[in-house]
Design a protein around this nucleic acid. Structure first.
Length: 179
DNA sequence: GCATGCACGAATTGGAGAGC
DNA sequence: GCTCTCCAATTCGTGCATGC
């Protein structure tokens, strides 16, 4: 990556000469000149000093400022249907495993269920959009119907099922173990 | 495995000089 | 005179070999 032109741009924006910047960063003016022409590369410590003098941080300096996707559309979704367990999982935020939250829309056919998840770190939250679900956490069973929500820490084996009479659709948000 | 010494390259300095 | 570039010299960091 060429940092020289970017450094020069920042220095000029601050109305500083190479000598003034060198004084502030406790470096030589010759070295600043070489840096701006990409004839040499600074150590991390030196770059941090220079950027401090230019009123910025190393994070901002190297940030490419990518456009963050905020709104996700149906075509962004990834879905998987399990004909054995009678459920359909839609990852409504793609690649969310790397985020702090992993939201999915889960549709359970009558008598359908999720797979039995082993205990893990993190937290689980759900909101029932349609129907009724039974939440199995260890040996306990909780019921939540349309408009209700549930929240638990998955320290025991857990899964969700829909009664034989009705199916259900829920929004399910879990946090990965690393969080 | 750890400490020491050595060699080498990269980082940095600071004076000299060129261009405007 | 100010700003910038060039370049030789110095300092620093790292990898490698050697000995304990």
């Amino acid at each position: 990556m060429e940092i020289g032109p970017k450094l020069r741009e920042l220095r000029i924006a601050k109305n500083l000469t190479q000598e003034e910047l060198a004084d502030r960063a406790e470096l030589s003016k010759g070295f600043i000149s070489q840096l701006e022409r990409d004839l040499t590369s600074p150590s991390i410590a030196t770059l941090v000093d220079i950027l401090q003098c230019l009123g910025t941080t190393i994070n901002e300096f190297f940030s490419e400022d990518p456009e963050e996707q905020v709104v996700f559309h149906y075509e962004d979704y990834f879905e998987k249907e399990d004909t054995e367990l009678l459920n359909k999982t839609e990852w409504i935020i793609p690649n969310a495993q790397k985020n702090m939250m992993e939201p999915i829309r889960l549709t359970l056919k009558p008598g359908g269920s999720t797979y039995r998840d082993v205990p893990h770190e993190g937290e689980e939250f759900g909101y029932v959009l349609k129907g009724t679900v039974k939440i199995h956490i260890g040996k306990k069973v909780y019921t939540a119907k349309k408009g209700e929500s549930f929240y638990f820490t998955p320290h025991s084996e857990h899964y969700i099922e829909a009664p034989n009479s009705t199916g259900a659709t829920i929004i399910w948000v879990s946090t990965p173990p690393s969080f």
